[in-house]
Each structure stands twice: as structure tokens, then as C-alpha cells.
Write a protein that binds this DNA or RNA. Structure first.
Length: 139
DNA sequence: GCCAACGTTGGC
DNA sequence: GCCAACGTTGGC
């Protein structure tokens, strides 16, 4: 079993926490996830894994890449329940944001969880999908 | 354990 | 602003 980096997609409404704010902060604890599937994905992340940072609702585009800096630990914002968060740091901004329309228009991306289950806020991305997104981001 | 009702998310 | 999709809750 070779160890391989895993890829993810994290979703955030820019009116709540925009990519630009994340870059300015230089780090973010990804708290507030209250969905079991999303939580399990957070827990599966390993330091160094890379996540596509996607703006939902407003913009509907992938802005850049975040990297896992601290693996899952108890979410300090959870009053009750078994919830986790991870810490991300900005890795790089895309030269060109990848819009939802571009993703929908790419045959290689038609199986993305983003399209199949758009409500899941923390999703796995395959290596092939990730490579395609990076390609689209170059414009 | 089933399923209807409800709340939330997110695209349109 | 609307509504479809999904997850959660609660009655039975």
C-alpha cells in the first residue's frame, strides 16, 4: 500500500468566509461542520492533503487551494455532539477561478461529488478530477 | 424500523 | 424568491 495524498473540496459561502479572508488570515480552523458525512471526511484528512476552496451560492467558483495543517480535533464551537474540525492554510490562488459552469462542462468532472451531492460541504475529490481542475484554473 | 414533516443548502 | 435535494427528527 503506497501512501498517497488525498484531495478534497471544501465549500463556503463567500459572504460567510471568503477565500480572500482566508488568505488574509493565513490560516483557518474549519469549524461548524454539523453533517456526519462531512465530518467523516474531515477526519479522513491527513496533514499535507490539499483541498479545493469553493465559493457556494455567490460566485459558484473554485478560488484556490488549501492545505491541511492540523488533522482533525474536537470542534471547540460544538456545544454538544461529536464534531471535528481541521486547520487549513492557504496553498495557492488559482490564476483563473474555476466556475461551476466550467466544471459542469468538463466530461472529466461530471462525476464530481460537487455535482452529484452539491449539499455536502466537505467532499472527496479524485486525483484525476483534481488534475483537471488545476488544468482549468490555468485558463 | 418506517416514513411524513420539517429545516437547511444551494442552484436557478 | 423559489424550489429540489438531502439530512434530521419525531410519531407511530
Amino acid at each position: 500500500m503506497s501512501k498517497s495524498r488525498h484531495y478534497w473540496l471544501i465549500k463556503q459561502e463567500p459572504t460567510s468566509y471568503a477565500w480572500s479572508a482566508f488568505v488574509k488570515d493565513g490560516r483557518a480552523a474549519w469549524t461548524g461542520v454539523r453533517n456526519f458525512g462531512a465530518r467523516n471526511n474531515l477526519r479522513a484528512m491527513r496533514k499535507g492533503d490539499v483541498a479545493v476552496y469553493y465559493h457556494s451560492v455567490v460566485g459558484k467558483e473554485a478560488m484556490g487551494l488549501a492545505q491541511v495543517d492540523v488533522e482533525a480535533y474536537p470542534d471547540p464551537t460544538a456545544d454538544e455532539g461529536d464534531w471535528s474540525c481541521v486547520d487549513f492554510v492557504p496553498l495557492k490562488a488559482f490564476p483563473h477561478p474555476v466556475t461551476l459552469d466550467m466544471i459542469k462542462g468538463s466530461p472529466k468532472l461530471k462525476e464530481m461529488v460537487l455535482l452529484k451531492n452539491s449539499r455536502l460541504s466537505v467532499q472527496p475529490v479524485t486525483a484525476a478530477e483534481f488534475a483537471e481542475i488545476e488544468k482549468l484554473a490555468k485558463g
